[in-house]
Simulated assay, not measured.
Amino acid sequence: MIKKKRWLTFMLAMAPGVGHLYLGFKKQGLQFMIGAFICIIFIPSMPSVFPFALAALWFYQLFDALQRATWNKMAAAEYDRMMYSQDMYGGDLPWPPLSMPHMPDYPKDDLDSAWVGGACILAGFLLLLITAFPDLWRLLTEINIGTILLSLGLIGYGYHMLKKNKKA
């Protein structure tokens, strides 16, 4: 079991998602990064909503990273206690000393490379659009493209959830 430092997790979690990446939660770390990126991109289109959403996301991911780091430290201490305690050989253990049960690790999440690739392409396209075509980006923010994209995303996600959970 690899021990992670809580203070380093806290410092890295100042940037959304980086603390989770340090702890080994790649999928959740990238989700927090993408969420913060989307909030920052859409702040000009809805300045009363997205700064609040960004702050809520930042505080939540900071708290979650610290909770996971604390769990990791407690699990490592319990693992060390089970492996190296003095009463291990003389106590009433439900298993023989040489067949110590495996200490469960905090559940890890797997990344789907297709989603990560798609998110990177989308982020790169938006960054290219902002830098190479600033007038077009200004025009798109004036017509509230952020609100339009958000509403289309919510409609698409709602349709996906209804299709996925259809009772047959």
Rank of each mutant, 00 (worst) to 15 (best):
T147K: 11
K108P: 04
K166Q: 15
P47H: 14
M33W: 09
K26E: 03
P134A: 06
Y89E: 01
K108N: 11
D105Y: 04
A69W: 13
M1C: 03
F133V: 02
L149I: 04
L66T: 12
L154G: 06
L162S: 12
R81S: 08
M74R: 15
A69R: 09
P104F: 05
G156Y: 11
I145C: 07
A13T: 03
G158V: 11
D92K: 15
R138K: 13
M33R: 04
I43N: 02
V18N: 05
G17Y: 04
P107W: 01
A119G: 01
M11T: 09
T141N: 13
Y79C: 12
A55K: 13
D110R: 00
M74Y: 10
A123K: 00
M103L: 08
A15I: 15
L126D: 00
P94L: 02
K108Y: 14
A75H: 06
L93W: 11
M1Q: 05
A114M: 05
D110M: 01
W71N: 14
A114R: 03
M82Y: 01
G19S: 15
K27R: 14
G117S: 10
F50T: 07
F133I: 00
S85M: 03
W58N: 05
M11Y: 04
Y157N: 06
L150Y: 06
I34H: 02
H102E: 10
K5Q: 06
S99H: 09
W137P: 05
H20Y: 10
Q61V: 02
Q67W: 15
W137S: 09
K73A: 15
F32V: 02
C120V: 13
W7A: 10
A76M: 01
L54K: 09
Y60M: 14
F133D: 00
H20M: 12
L149D: 08
I40Y: 08
G124A: 03
M103Q: 01
L152I: 13
Q31T: 01
F42C: 09
M11S: 07
L57M: 11
R68N: 14
I130Y: 08
M14Q: 05
G124W: 01
F59W: 10
Q67K: 12
F25L: 00
S151G: 09
P101G: 02
P51Q: 08
G158Y: 09
G153Y: 13
A123I: 07
C120D: 01
M14S: 11
A56C: 10
L152E: 00
T131R: 15
D80S: 06
A123F: 05
K108T: 07
G158H: 08
F32G: 06
G90N: 15
L66N: 13
L8S: 03
